[in-house]
Write a protein that binds this DNA or RNA. Structure first.
Length: 558
DNA sequence: GCTCAGAGCGCC
DNA sequence: AGGGCGCTCTGAGC
């Protein structure tokens, strides 16, 4: 599959160049294109029997203008994202790319997001071109191809880079299409919970009434409940024994102020985080368009920047509504991280527990623990590194039943405690501990040092071990999810009526689909999950079970 | 006026 | 509990 590079024209400012490159990185024809003609040129090549893999510096800058022009591409190679993976991966550690000193491709942030409905400027205009040297795209592609070819397991890295790049395409497409959002429903919901939207600057009646009630019960009529220091002082001067204003401390109080204060905190948060101001800022023309940041988390999970799309509180999900005649196909992977752990460790017993749709139930049925709650806490403890409480109590049983799975995360934790790097299934590696932490990790292992210092250092070492323990599972789960979504995107192209992805949340996807093909979409979602399992793990006995719902409102799912 | 960190809480 | 995040608010410091 040939590459076509899309780069800025080094001579003509504002123009671009399409540059054909063979699979081996050998340069071919170079075609200059005026910026306005780029979408047509791209679309023409996409119509070929074998569309190219587009290579560009940054999908978040190159792809939105194409989408605005109605052009979609099948595949790409995002040099910025792939560079970050290859720089860090232990699989490509010996490559020239990894060994080079930091260069212009290191530490590149995603292109700055556009405000929703902002005036369009030319996004082909590279801001860096005006001060720094333009990025050498062909040179970087060849370094990356060489790093993959010379890697220990090139197949894993190839899959990871393809999945990461497709994720970048999907992120841009989801922002372009937007999540269907019913502002009338949202407004009704806010009004019901908070009171009428105030016309001026004030706050809705119900929130103000609760604040007044709390102030009255504390006997402090001018207390500012939104100031944590003030609230803490206010509670203490009313004779309440709290050390913070956290919900769980307030809930434990036996005082009439507890109920209204908890309600106030809940509603005040809803108002500030997802109230009318949020709606005005982020929802336009019936669509919520957050800025997704693929690869924004060290483990490979996505982040968001603005809009808070990954933290949509359950209470406002009723505002996510399909268009008339359309449906939302909402699917989430059931107990994804335990299943991923079973697959990557080759733990057949744990895979067997996951044969049914509820893996935790499977652990109970296998007689390992007595209740589903115990099974869940034990699994979370294994993956997150719990050391105390109910989780730690049932860990020994889990370790006996699933030695390979538990052994894998334990090994990752020990490696982290020694300051070593760990990697996901496809080869995304954990960050190296910084110098200060590295020193601590060494101090923890030192003999004859001051006992207190060693104790502190060991505790910090265990903290890092919990991070690396979780990294391998969370990061591999993120890889599975990317492959799932990429497979789904490809299958959706074959369905009539243009069903399209509108939301992704770590282990959950949402497709906006014409009602008459929603069942077909649901089948595609399931087939894609199975495909993702095969892509990563080959012939694994692990089932990647899904919960799939076809609904009109997000609130109906789950 | 701006930036920054911490607290707190939303999500997985 | 325990891992990973982002957002809003406040208050401190410049």
């Amino acid at each position: 599959m040939p590459f076509v590079l899309l780069t800025d024209d080094p001579v003509r400012r504002g123009a671009l160049v399409l540059h054909e490159v063979t699979d081996d990185g050998e340069p071919g024809a170079t075609v200059p294109v005026a910026a306005a003609d780029v979408p047509a040129a791209v679309a023409e090549r996409e119509r070929a029997a074998q569309p190219p893999r587009w290579v560009w510096d940054d999908t978040s800058r190159r792809y939105p203008p194409l989408l605005d022009a109605g052009v979609r591409v099948e595949r790409c190679h995002d040099l910025r994202l792939c560079h970050a993976i290859l720089r860090g991966s232990v699989l490509s550690a010996g490559s020239a790319l990894a060994l080079a000193p930091p260069g212009p491709w290191d530490g590149l942030p995603q292109a700055s997001p556009r405000a929703p409905r902002a005036v369009e400027v030319s996004l082909f205009d590279d801001p860096r071109a005006h001060d720094d040297e333009p990025l050498d795209v062909l040179d970087e592609l060849r370094r990356q191809l060489a790093a993959v070819a010379g890697a220990d397991e090139p197949g894993r890295l190839r899959l990871l880079l393809a999945a990461e790049s497709t994720g970048a395409l999907i992120a841009a497409e989801m922002r372009h299409d937007g999540m269907p959002w019913d502002v009338r429903e949202h407004d009704a919901l806010l009004t019901r919970l908070l009171g009428e939207r105030p016309s001026g600057g004030g706050r809705p009646a119900r929130v103000e009434a609760l604040a007044a009630e709390v102030r009255g019960l504390l006997g402090q009529p001018s207390l500012n409940l939104d100031s944590q220091p003030d609230l803490l002082r206010g509670l203490r001067s009313a004779g309440l024994d709290v050390t913070s204003t956290r919900t769980y401390e307030i809930r434990a109080l036996d005082h009439p102020v507890t109920a209204p204060l908890l309600e106030y905190k809940k509603l005040a948060r809803l108002l500030s985080a997802n109230g009318w101001a949020w709606m005005d800022a982020w929802v336009h023309d019936g669509r919520f368009r957050p800025d997704y940041v693929p690869g924004g988390v060290v483990t490979g999970r996505w982040a968001t920047s603005g809009g808070g799309a990954l933290q949509l509180p359950a209470v406002i999900r009723g505002a996510v509504r399909a268009d008339p005649g359309w449906r939302l196909v909402v699917a989430d992977a059931a107990q994804l991280e335990p299943r991923v752990l079973a697959a990557m460790s080759g733990d057949a017993a744990m895979a067997a527990a996951g044969r049914q749709s509820d893996l935790y139930r499977g652990i109970v049925d296998a007689g390992i623990v007595e209740t589903r709650e115990q099974a869940k806490y034990a699994m979370l403890g294994a993956i997150y590194g719990a050391t105390t409480g109910a989780s730690a109590v049932v860990m020994p049983q889990l370790t006996r039943a699933y030695p390979r799975a538990v052994g894998l995360v334990e090994a990752a934790a020990r490696a982290g405690e020694r300051g070593e790097v760990v990697s996901t299934w496809l080869g995304r590696s954990s960050p190296r501990p910084d110098a200060a932490r590295q020193a601590e990790l060494q101090a923890a292992a030192a003999e004859g040092a001051d006992a207190e210092d060693v104790r502190v250092a060991r505790r910090r070492g265990r903290d890092w071990g919990r991070f690396t323990r979780n990294f391998v599972v969370q990061g591999t789960a993120a890889e599975w999810a990317l492959c799932w979504m990429a497979a789904l995107r490809r299958r959706l192209r074959a369905v009539e009526g243009r069903p399209h992805l509108v939301f992704f949340l770590h282990d959950e996807v949402m497709v906006h689909s014409p009602a008459d093909v929603a069942d077909e979409v649901a089948a595609a979602v399931r087939d894609s999950a199975a495909e993702a399992g095969r892509l990563l793990f080959g012939d694994t006995p692990v089932d990647f079970a899904l919960q799939v719902a076809v609904v009109e409102s997000y609130a109906e799912a789950k």
